[in-house]
Amino acid sequence: MADVLLQAQRVAKFFGDRPVLHALDFSARGGEAAVIVGRNGVGKSTLIRVLCGLARPSAGRLLLFGREPTTLAAPEFRRIGVLLHQTLLYPNLSARENLEFYSRIFGIVDCAAHALRWLERVGLSRAAEQPVTALSRGMEQRLAIARAMLADPDLILLDEPFAALDADGAALVTALIREALARSAAVIFTAHSPLEIMGVDLGLFKLEGGALSPFKEDGRRGPLRSLLRRL
């Protein structure tokens, strides 16, 4: 049985007096994939920020690789790959410069070649020297995903990775997720409508009213099936 990479125990998150998340229990093992579905504004982005250790929980405990995020040694952050609502890219640097910078930050040897490899992997080789401001939204998203994955992280958290992507882009992301799962990484991502990935046992969760629950299909399979995106 693979290691538990992430564990949230009764995690709550308040903004002032307002609870955005409460009594959240969730865990992910290596090789597991989960998608968290919810309406806009329900708190999916907050959930990702809490789960990756960026935002401290107001209550409860979050364990990453079995430890509290504040006790993690700096090099261990290499094992976490995150895609947030903000792209985390420097607008005035080129696509290649962005990936090179992050490669260097993550301690990867031979960053230049590594960056070029990833650019090719996400289909941005021709746009390598263009500043991020000149990229389309879909290209920016691909670059952001490359940034998240370039250190081959064990724990991958993606906030709406399929947003702004065309069919090719979606296929690319699906392939990357499959690759990550194959090397026993855990992948958790959010979406605003349910979907499934062919050949992947995807845990389906729903975030509603601040609580996380397994997505239950109702008896009538017909209409629900048609809502599902198949990837």
């Binding site: 709550a12 308040f14 007096d17 307002r18 609870p19 409460h22 009213g209 601040g210 609580a211």
Partner: peptide, 14 residues
């Protein structure tokens, strides 16, 4: 106390 109240409301709604 406000936070507790808000939590109870959310739990109740759920």
């Amino acid at each position: 106390l406000r936070k507790e109240l808000a939590l109870l409301e959310v739990a109740g709604a759920g």
